[in-house]
Design a protein around this nucleic acid. Structure first.
Lengths: 342, 342
DNA sequence: TTGTAGGCGTTATCAC
DNA sequence: GTGATAACGCCTACAA
């Protein structure tokens, strides 16, 4: 019952030519007569021939397949990056394998090994929260030819290209905007400080305050995660203080949403009493009746650029050595109702 | 500068045994002595041996890779299905390749061909809006061994398993809920009727009205797409009529969101004046200050079940013939503020 | 312009 | 329990 695929041998037999001729005709080799080429093409189609990429890959060492590892695929940010990646690479004949690390370094490592086994031509990773030991990544760089590219959540490692957004700048302009709207006591709800992106957002916040001669107060920096609940809880806590915040810059849209919910719960007004701005430009931020200001990370573009870095590296690689690139994209501030007081 | 991977030949040379022995040892073959097995294993590790899946796949005909084609990956529904798929298949050693059809039948067909070339072990598809000609799919079924599985957006084709939710039931309970809340003049904003899912939602709406002895009025069924704008525009149109709707059942959450925005714009009250319920349970529906009722499609579960159908088919396939399955999942109604009048 | 033959790394079928 | 060898489907020197 098993249906066998037709191979170039089948075609060569039928046409009484050698497999080499068939292969060459199929690959549009220059030194082959037009008629044989046409004939081979025709019979290939007729016999429903499909090239076996496996065999080709085994021979050439190139699978025309890349892998991407993200914490979870069903988030707006990561699925958008992957969309961009697929759209950049697909026209060049590359397939994209997706893996999820579940934000766990061990699983991430396992997925990485699997992708290596699969002989992918490149691996794109946005590292998990608890990834710290990069030794095995360095080992891969040292012992294999498989390039690794980090996007968004990165670590700096020699030989690895990275594509990120300027989180520092995004946080800076967000904070600056709040300052310009007249907010004085701006709190920051930061994300996991094990990740560079959240470190940078914190620093952007701090530097904006400094540049505008506002005091940087340690107690005003609350280390939250990125959930709605944490936003609610953090807001509950800080509103009990004598010196309440009059604005919140959250490193996460979800936390910002929690903040908004709690403000409403406390019968305070946004943006009059308290201004709010988030980060990521999640779809819901603009859908809300009271829309939430946010910083867009241009994820689709990030995916496309990531793919492009890989494609370029192949071109350049004629020299055998490819130089790592460190690309930083510009974030876009979206000012909405939650922070527009003037 | 190119680093070569170590092969079983390298190991066999170093150990002065045959490649067959090495292969067997590595695969834990029963008839091989414990010492050689241990020895091979040790040197394999020492030499940093990595099995070449390509060669294995070429030999066995199994790539341990599946493909999935969706319109766009960066939507909550599709990325969630893919999440489920990956989580079901990954533990069994399968990789997942993702492709986007951009809701276009031609691109979809091309992606399908590419996946076939890649020799994937199974292809999961949620078809595009304008897919109608299924001849090439039937041809693939007839001429290849690659199973195709439809999820959510399907067509009925012999030999193809499908995993869907009971859209009819989802629409029925949504409409029923509106009726029970006392709404009398319930409109339906339907989706693209080329897709079965939207046909079923329409029919569920109709049958609920019938069962409750409410008139089914043709003019109350508006054929919209699935965007916010279309929701706004459709709402503008119908509110100019003499017999205005007092509730909207929308086949899409985005259209429902547009409806809500326009109702607010018209200074009407939700749910007092007009009740609203959507479909898909998009994250934003529960985040809104005025949360929107919706029907959940359990996308992650749908992905897991889809993967499981494939895995089961492999097991069963010892007989050589695999029977198609038609699985229908139960949707869940989430009643929120936009429709709770009593 | 076309044909022959070897090899990519594994596994499986024979032998011994 | 182990070894030699063919085969998976393709590409590509090298010959002719």
């Amino acid at each position: 019952m098993t249906k066998k695929n037709t191979t170039i041998y089948d075609i060569s037999k039928k046409l009484n030519v050698s497999v080499a001729t068939v292969s060459r005709a199929l690959n549009n080799h220059p030194r082959i007569s037009q008629e044989t080429k046409a004939l081979v093409m025709a019979t290939a189609k007729e016999m429903n021939y499909k090239q076996n990429n496996l065999a080709k890959a085994l021979k050439s060492g190139e699978t025309k397949t890349v892998g991407v590892i993200v914490p979870y695929i069903n988030t707006n940010f990561f699925s958008s990056v992957i969309r961009g990646l697929e759209e950049e690479l697909s026209p060049h004949g590359y397939r994209v394998i997706i893996c999820q690390s579940h934000d766990d370094a061990d699983i991430e490592k396992k997925q990485l090994t699997t992708l290596l086994h699969t002989q992918v031509d490149c691996i794109f990773i946005s590292i998990s929260r608890n990834t710290s030991d990069m030794d095995y990544v360095k080992k891969i760089i040292a012992t294999t030819n498989t390039p690794i590219i980090f996007f968004d959540r990165k670590k700096d490692i020699p030989g690895i290209s990275t594509i990120t957004i300027d989180d520092h700048r995004g946080a800076y302009v967000a904070t600056e905007h709040l300052i310009q709207q007249g907010y004085k006591n701006i709190y920051h709800f930061s994300g996991d400080q094990n990740l560079e992106i959240y470190q940078n957002r914190l620093n952007g916040y701090i530097n904006a305050l400094k540049d505008y001669n506002l005091p940087v107060i340690k107690e005003n920096i609350i280390n939250t995660g990125s959930s709605i609940e944490e936003g609610i809880n953090a807001m509950k806590t800080v509103c009990k203080r004598k010196l309440k915040p009059d604005a919140i810059f959250s490193a996460s849209d979800f936390t910002a949403l929690g903040v908004c919910k709690e403000i409403k719960n406390l019968k305070l007004k946004i943006p009059q009493d308290i201004g709010v701005i988030g980060f990521s430009n999640e779809p819901f931020t603009q859908f809300m009746e009271l829309s939430i200001s946010s910083v867009d990370q241009t994820p689709v573009l990030m995916g496309k650029i990531s793919g492009n870095v890989f494609l370029e590296s192949i071109k350049d690689n004629s020299s055998g050595i490819s130089i790592e690139k460190k690309l930083v994209l510009a974030p876009t501030l979206y000012i909405r109702e939650s922070s527009k007081r003037k």
